[in-house]
Design a protein around this nucleic acid. Structure first.
Length: 601
DNA sequence: TTGACCACGTA
DNA sequence: CGTACGTGGTCAAC
């Protein structure tokens, strides 16, 4: 039934082979790439189209990269891969800039929910196979980097599949890259998986939008690989200076570090009896005891609890100041710079395209929670600028779109959505804002209560959308975002009494209500980000940071205005397609700056 | 060594 | 009784 891969003799032959097979511009071309470690290590490449599959090995990774770049230039295919991290990862640092793709793992996370996206489970899911019967490969195989023997004696050792229909564990564990023949079959497997995913998306009610989401999420996964490779441009001397201002000079050695640490601690401890004997500022329990002796009886020692005494208690002042400098000294100190900043001044961390509940992007190395006081260190390189754009009031605008509430959609025509909402409710703007946020996030206490009733009357469609999500979460049903991402709410903990169960269900309800808004906002944002990514390339610009509703583009200074215009036009384009012409308006604040912290240029 | 909790940064 | 995330600290259980 399956035809064996045809081996391409040399990397140079790849484009010719694809053209001969009738591949046209924009066709899907599946790709599996394995590049061995080392500066010029060998590469194993598998490629597949509906016409067949091929494989080749290249003595030098750059030869493989060049061959794929030639295909990209001539055919601009939709590259199909099991995951961008696995297949595009080895390539992006070697030159080829690939435009569009289909990321089987990313689409799987949309369809199935959750974060599990390895090829074996994706395959089982698409074929309705029992997930618990997915064959497992031993850790030893992964560590050794070699394929194990076939786990089933009856299986064809050259077949991707085991007798039971599962992907073979040894292949999935990396054994597909053992030779060019297997790589070709592995690429064909990805093409098959994509076809099955397309079937599922096509059967859904909102097939067009779901397919658009699949494309955007795939591109976002590729963008994440690029973000991890490119890094965030940092003005390292400024970064060192800011760290020094907060945490003191760079320690010479471990002894010096301990000495500096003692000196920092002492500024707080000298406000305590016996110079703080027995108090460890890094141990909240002892801090709480010490505060209690000083007359502050608090349930915990969090900063916001201490805030009321700022300015009136020298101890509280010293402790709050210590907390701030300790944060920089530990999480964002010299060690952090040494670990994550390269010799080229780029801050690098790993990016995930759809982690967590609603499918937001996540980033490591502190890229998503950089304290404001360090942001001046994020700076454009010479001859370049940062174009900074953030979406305004994105979540209520998203709610208007996904719920189809025409009244709320009308409010989005205003630059400040809360102004027309306040007018309609007959309340002050701050009250309207708190009420809208409370409705989306689930707060029920405080002053939002009365205004919430007004929201129910003014925007019943949007409020019904939220309460339905809440009910789903309460009952334990998964919810689905506007773009089609499944979000599981998880089971209740066992052994709860009635009150605890009610609290846990309410927590799930809030979670689900938030997930449909935050998740849809994440989908819109990523669609925007990948559209900007595509448009940036011809301008020599690149996206260097994605922060939930904010984009940072590193651009040649002469193209600053063009990139700024691009950010606006991409948002218009994406919003129009995303909302299906529902008249919901999205707005972005765009500024050209040298440093991230600059208000304007 | 691992997982829980605390604390705190961002959206 | 607002949600989500990543990181680093300490402690108790392994």
């Amino acid at each position: 039934m399956l035809t064996a891969p045809v081996l391409v003799a040399r990397a140079d032959d790849l484009l010719h082979t694809l053209l001969t097979a009738g591949t046209r511009r924009g066709d899907a071309v599946a790709l599996a790439v394995d590049i061995r470690p080392g500066p010029a290590g060998p590469a194993v490449v598998g490629v597949a189209t509906t016409a067949g599959c091929w494989g080749f090995t290249a003595a030098r990774a750059d030869d493989a990269a060049g061959a794929l770049a030639a295909v990209e230039d001539r055919l601009r295919p939709r590259w199909v891969w099991w995951s961008a991290a696995a297949s595009a990862g080895p390539l992006v640092s070697r030159g080829p800039r690939l435009a569009t793709c289909w990321d089987v793992a990313a689409v799987h996370r949309i369809l199935a929910g959750g974060a599990v996206d390895d090829p074996a489970r994706v395959w089982a899911f698409l074929h309705g196979l029992d997930l618990s019967s997915v064959p497992r490969t031993g850790q030893l195989d992964l560590l050794a980097g070699t394929a194990s023997e076939p786990t089933s004696a009856t299986a064809d050792p050259d077949d991707v599949l085991e007798a039971g229909g599962h992907l073979r564990a040894d292949w999935a564990g990396g054994g597909w890259a053992r030779d060019a023949d297997r790589a070709g079959r592995w690429a064909r497997g990805a093409l098959t998986a994509r076809a099955l995913q397309l079937d599922r998306l096509g059967a859904a009610q909102d097939a067009d939008r779901r397919r658009a989401t699949a494309h955007a999420e795939s591109a976002a996964a590729l963008l994440c690989v690029e973000l991890g490779a490119a890094g965030l441009p940092l003005d390292v001397p400024t970064a060192e200076q800011l760290v020094g201002a907060a945490a003191g000079p760079r320690p010479r050695d471990a002894g010096h570090e301990a000495e500096l640490r003692r000196a920092r601690d002492d500024v707080v401890l000298r406000h305590l009896p016996e110079r703080g004997a027995g108090v460890d500022l890094r141990n909240p329990a002892t801090v709480r005891t010490a505060l209690s002796r000083a007359g502050f009886d608090l349930p915990d020692t969090r900063s916001w609890r201490l805030e009321p005494w700022r300015g009136s208690s020298a101890l509280v002042d010293a402790l709050l100041a210590w907390r701030k400098s300790e944060r920089v000294a530990t999480t964002y100190g010299y060690g952090w710079l040494d670990r994550h900043v390269g010799a080229d001044g780029r801050l690098r961390g790993a990016w995930a395209a759809s982690d967590g509940a609603g499918g937001r992007m996540t980033a490591q190395a502190g890229l998503h929670n950089l304290p404001a006081e360090l942001r001046p260190a994020v700076a454009a390189e010479p001859g370049r600028v940062l174009v900074r754009a953030d979406l305004g009031q994105v979540e209520p605008r998203v709610l208007a779109a996904v719920s189809g509430d025409r009244a709320l959609a009308a409010a989005t025509r205003d630059d400040d959505l809360y102004a027309p909402v306040a007018a309609r409710l007959g309340v002050d703007r701050p009250v309207a804002k708190v009420a809208v946020l409370a409705a989306m996030y689930g707060q029920t206490s405080g002053t939002a209560g009365q205004a919430l009733a007004g929201l129910e009357r003014a925007y019943p469609v949007a409020m019904r959308y939220l309460s339905r999500a809440y009910d789903d979460g309460w009952a334990g049903r998964s919810v689905t975002t506007y773009g089609g991402r499944r979000v599981e709410v998880g089971p209740l903990p066992a052994g709860l009494d009635e009150a605890a169960e009610r609290a846990a269900r309410a927590r799930r309800g809030r979670f689900a209500r938030n997930a449909v808004v935050q998740g849809a906002a994440a989908e819109l944002f990523k669609a925007w980000a990948v559209t900007v990514r595509a448009g940036s390339r011809p301008l020599g610009a690149e996206v260097v940071l994605c922060l939930h509703d904010e984009l940072l583009v590193h651009a040649p200074a002469e193209h600053a205005d063009a990139v700024a215009a691009l950010l606006h036009s991409c948002l218009r384009e994406v919003a129009l397609g995303w909302t299906g012409g529902s008249q919901v308006r999205f707005v972005a604040d765009v500024r050209v700056v040298r440093r991230w912290s600059d208000a304007k240029d």
